[in-house]
Simulated scan of single mutants.
Amino acid sequence: MSKGVFSKGLAVLMLAGLLAGCDNPQKTVIPADATTWKAVLDPVVDALPEGDRALLAGYLLRSQLRAGGAVTGVTVEQAIKNQKAWLKEQEKHKSAQ
């Protein structure tokens, strides 16, 4: 197999993977580089219900504020679930005080 055919095949597979993620915005992986979040996540955020938008925003903010705030390999769906769990935990702490 020639190098050109392999490169084209790899590019097609990568594009197919990106397009598959477009079917379900919640499957989009949050980029580790926060400087690319706006470009990558704006279309995803537009497709989310308002409540999920707020949860995702909260998760992203928390990820930036905590030490070593890089997000790696986390999908939008996981981020929303993580934020819900974190908020629930915060409510438990408030109730215990």
Rank of each mutant, 00 (worst) to 15 (best):
S95W: 10
L60K: 07
G51D: 15
L13Q: 07
L65Q: 14
Q64E: 12
T72K: 09
E50W: 05
L60A: 03
L56K: 06
S95L: 12
A57W: 05
G4I: 14
T28W: 03
D33V: 06
G69W: 08
P25Q: 06
D52M: 08
K38R: 15
Q90I: 05
L10D: 04
K8W: 04
L61T: 12
Q83W: 03
L56Q: 05
E50C: 02
L87S: 05
L19D: 06
L55P: 01
Q64R: 15
V74D: 11
P49L: 03
I80H: 02
G68C: 02
A79G: 05
N82D: 15
G69I: 02
G9F: 04
A20H: 09
Q26P: 01
K3P: 00
D52L: 04
E89Q: 12
M1E: 08
P31Q: 05
G68I: 05
L10F: 10
P49R: 06
S2R: 08
T75V: 08
V45A: 07
A32N: 07
V40M: 07
P25C: 14
V29S: 02
L65P: 01
V29N: 00
S95C: 02
D23V: 14
G4A: 13
A67I: 07
D42C: 04
L10A: 14
Q97M: 10
C22P: 00
Q83I: 01
L15I: 04
T36C: 06
G21D: 09
V12C: 06
G9K: 05
K84W: 00
K3S: 09
V40C: 06
S95M: 10
R53I: 05
E50I: 13
Y59Q: 08
A70T: 13
V74S: 06
A20Q: 13
R53D: 08
A54D: 09
L13S: 07
G58M: 01
L10V: 10
G9D: 03
Q26H: 03
D46G: 09
D52T: 03
F6L: 13
A96W: 06
Q97L: 13
A67M: 05
Q90R: 13
L19M: 15
T36Q: 15
G58C: 01
W86L: 06
A96M: 12
A16F: 10
N24I: 08
A79V: 09
A47P: 00
A85R: 13
L15P: 01
A39S: 12
L10Y: 09
L61E: 13
M1I: 07
